[in-house]
């Protein structure tokens, strides 16, 4: 039991690290991360669908798949496809969701 508990905490810590280390370098603005999460939630509603959509977008960013307004995309262009492996990316997205999801809003 002790070992399992330790492993869970370790994996969470590693996941947290994934988001911190692989995403924060470009996404330093808190507000932007909130906007992304709000837009994903508005379109996909549930955790499963949001994470799946993010995963697919980051693996293969397309203007047509973006949740950002067209003006934003034409001005900044779409990001480059990620070089991260699937597992790391999933963990990073999971951590992002855990930190920024909208259910946390209700006090």
């Amino acid at each position: 039991m002790r070992h399992i508990g330790f492993l869970v905490i370790l994996s969470l810590w590693v996941g947290a690290n994934n988001f911190e280390s692989h995403c924060k370098s470009c996404h330093g603005m808190e507000r932007q991360l909130h906007i992304f999460m709000h837009r994903y939630t508005l379109k996909y509603s549930s955790q499963e669908r949001i994470q799946k959509a993010m995963f697919e977008y980051i693996k293969n960013p397309q203007a047509s798949n973006s949740i950002m307004p067209l003006g934003f995309i034409t001005h900044w262009g779409v990001k480059k496809p990620t070089t991260l492996d699937d597992k790391t990316l999933k963990e990073a997205i999971g951590e992002y969701y855990r930190l920024y999801n909208l259910s946390k809003v209700w006090e």
Binding site: R31, I35, H38, L102, K104, V105, W106, E107
Partner: peptide, 9 residues
């Protein structure tokens, strides 16, 4: 949703 509030009742 539109206020982007992090806390709301």
């Amino acid at each position: 949703h539109n206020t982007l509030a992090t806390k709301a009742s």
